[in-house]
Design a protein around this nucleic acid. Structure first.
Lengths: 156, 156
DNA sequence: CTTGAAAAACGTGATGT
DNA sequence: ACATCACGTTTTTCAAG
């Protein structure tokens, strides 16, 4: 048994890349529209996309919502130097708090890096107080986001 | 002239939130499916979603692709303390490099925080060398990502 | 992968409450 | 703001090439 996963390599030919770009740009394009873009028929495109999903190349389709419209007008990155043995607790806390947008375990002086949203400085402060229970924190406020959600291309 | 934007407040009732959750979970759901989920008809749902897009509440629909499958097996956050007057140059560089996934202007000792992808440590090192032209850098390698792409709920 | 075809599901616009 | 209906389109599944 050679491969466990059907290796997405053959999916990344010219047409596959074209499809991947289009779906990153607009995930709600119909198969018929996609077919017109890449010069195939709709069933052929549907099968390609289905294989991209099955191999895990495409992990899902997400609506991108305006955080500010939901009240999260500010963004911050918080580095946490966890107290010994509190890693699991911090991860559970991060998973429970809707304000925690991302949570990464990292190498270096701190062991975690969180991306958090907050309505205002008071809200952010409350979060930081809660986080300080797990370790020393260092936070960095985002002034303006210059770039996000880039369309990815293959590097390998 | 009261409001310039038709204020998405009325879009965030129970049904609106339900729709928003579903579309964050699976952006390719049909209007008919969405209608069944929330208990409305398809045309009603289509109009609601169209208004969510028009008001900017929904900013788009993106396919989420597996970065590792595209060759970007490692992720790092890089803080850059830019040299005086080089901010615009750094922003242009960040926009040009496909490896730069996010670029934020931040408050604190450093003025920029970048999220970058790379194929391996050599690739990452090449990036850091290029970035060092714009200022002093401090990079943090991601070991494992515990949380990302959370479904957002309103806070206001 | 294409073509063709057929059935089910879907999107859209008009109309009415 | 929503329901209903009607029409055209899309999706899906087959077949055969």
């Amino acid at each position: 048994m050679p491969d466990r996963t059907p290796s997405p390599l053959d999916l990344l030919d010219d047409i596959g890349l074209h499809l991947l770009r289009e779906l990153q740009r607009d995930a709600r394009l119909s198969f018929a529209d996609l077919a017109r873009q890449v010069g195939l028929t709709a069933p052929a495109v549907a099968e390609r996309v289905r294989r991209m999903e099955a191999t895990g190349l495409i992990q899902g389709y997400r609506a991108e919502v305006n955080r500010a419209a939901l009240g999260l007008r500010m963004t911050a990155f918080v580095r946490v130097r966890t107290h010994p043995g509190r890693d699991a607790e911090l991860e559970r806390f991060a998973a429970e708090q809707r304000e925690v947008l991302e949570c990464h375990e990292v190498a270096g002086e701190e062991s975690y890096l969180l991306k958090v949203g907050a309505t205002d400085v008071h809200h952010l402060n409350r979060l930081l107080v809660l986080l300080s229970a797990f370790g020393a924190t260092h936070s960095t406020m985002v002034l303006t986001t210059k770039l996000t959600g880039r369309v990815l291309e293959p590097f390998a």
